[in-house]
């Protein structure tokens, strides 16, 4: 009982540190990455290669005055940034990072609180993010922010449907909503992972792409960053936010990217299992380092996409969700159901 409490406290501190540190340093990665793509140097003044820059930015944001414009809905205005950050931290509670994989505690599972309905809880909390956009945009009393909030909500709702349907497909294949079970079902090499069309799921690649697009759209990343289309809506829903109000939105965005990448890794890329457990014994067959490697590769892909593509319009975005992704996800669901349940029943 006591030990459990210590475990919980340690993990909560660790999770918050992980979320905040990731948010801070992903900004650095993004800025450096963008600079590299654009043949610039990026941040280079504060610390070696600008490594202290995120801390300096954080200190600057925290020391700034919070401006409350006239006529805003103050309680909601203050609540919105919290809605952006708190669910993100909550989600990290249930995400398993995998076993240590080496040393004396090789089998120790790095997870704050594994749940048997972990996936459900993550999806539930992830949808709270839309509330943050809506409240922030609405309460700022700024027309650009309101348009952005409306866009954000219609986008969030549209892409949540294919996201959830695709997740259900995986749940059907693995037979569990517990994330560690889903990962264990993919153990044994990359050909066993869910995105490969080998393991009873012919539609693996399609689901993976659908899920990845939905993840981009749900986290409001380019090319789906309509809510923050700076050439149209200034800064979108957080136009009126200053100081840590803006800081929390910003951290929430990056925390969501980490969550999205983690979820994609767990559902499709074998989580913490090694792609070649037999041939390449680096890092062991399963280790949280594999997990981190995979999510950071995914995040790097996200960064590359952002700095390469122009932005889509709202209409084509919604068309993509309702006319392409949702039908694909449904076909995918039906196809998987047939493969998993009906074919064995017929003795095939």
């Amino acid at each position: 009982m006591d030990l459990n409490l210590v475990h919980m406290v340690l993990f909560l501190v660790g999770i918050i540190a992980f979320a905040a540190g990731n948010a801070a340093y992903l900004v650095w990665v993004e800025r450096k990455g963008a600079a590299r793509i654009q043949r610039r140097t990026g941040p280079c003044e504060v610390g070696p290669a600008g490594l202290i820059q995120p801390l300096a930015d954080g200190a600057k944001l925290m020391s700034k005055q919070i401006v409350f414009p006239d006529g805003i809905d103050k309680p909601l205005f203050m609540l919105a940034p919290m809605f952006a950050m708190i669910p993100a931290v909550m989600i990290f509670v249930t995400i398993p990072f995998g076993p240590v994989g080496f040393g004396p505690f090789a089998d120790f599972m790095i997870v704050a609180r594994e749940m048997n309905i972990g996936l459900l809880m993550i999806l539930a909390f992830a949808s709270v993010n839309v509330m943050a956009l809506l409240l922030g945009g609405w309460s700022s009393k700024n027309k650009y922010a309101v348009i952005s909030a409306i866009r954000g909500v219609s986008q969030g709702i549209a892409f949540e449907i294919p996201l959830v349907i695709t997740a259900i497909t995986i749940v059907m294949i693995s037979g569990s909503m517990q994330l560690s079970t889903i990962v264990e079902a993919q153990a044994g090499g990359f050909w066993n992972w869910n995105w490969m069309p080998l393991q009873g799921n012919l539609f693996g690649p399609v689901s993976f792409i659908v899920f990845f697009i939905c993840f981009l759209a749900e986290t409001n990343r380019a090319p789906f960053d309509l809510g923050e289309a700076e050439s149209e809506l200034i800064a979108g829903f957080h136009t009126e936010y200053s100081s840590m109000g803006f800081g929390l939105f910003f951290m929430g965005e990056y925390a969501n990217i980490v969550i999205g990448a983690s979820l994609t890794t767990i559902l499709f890329l074998g989580g913490w299992t090694s792609p070649f457990p037999e041939f390449v014994p680096v890092l062991g067959a399963s280790s949280f380092l594999w997990f981190l490697l995979k999510i950071y590769l995914l995040i790097w892909t996200v960064v590359l996409i952002r700095w390469t593509y122009p932005r889509v319009t709202l209409w084509s975005l919604l068309n993509l969700a309702w006319k392409i992704l949702i039908p694909f996800a449904l076909i995918n669901l039906l196809g998987s159901a047939v493969l998993i349940k009906i074919l064995p029943m017929l003795g095939l």
């Binding site: 963008a34 793509i37 654009q38 043949r39 610039r40 380019a222 090319p223 960053d225 289309a229 050439s231 700095w307 390469t308 593509y309 122009p310 932005r311």
Partner: peptide
Amino acid sequence: FVLDLGGFTPLLYAFD
């Protein structure tokens, strides 16, 4: 123009 459409990178290439 591409910046208006949300693509940032071509701007810097063109400036180069």
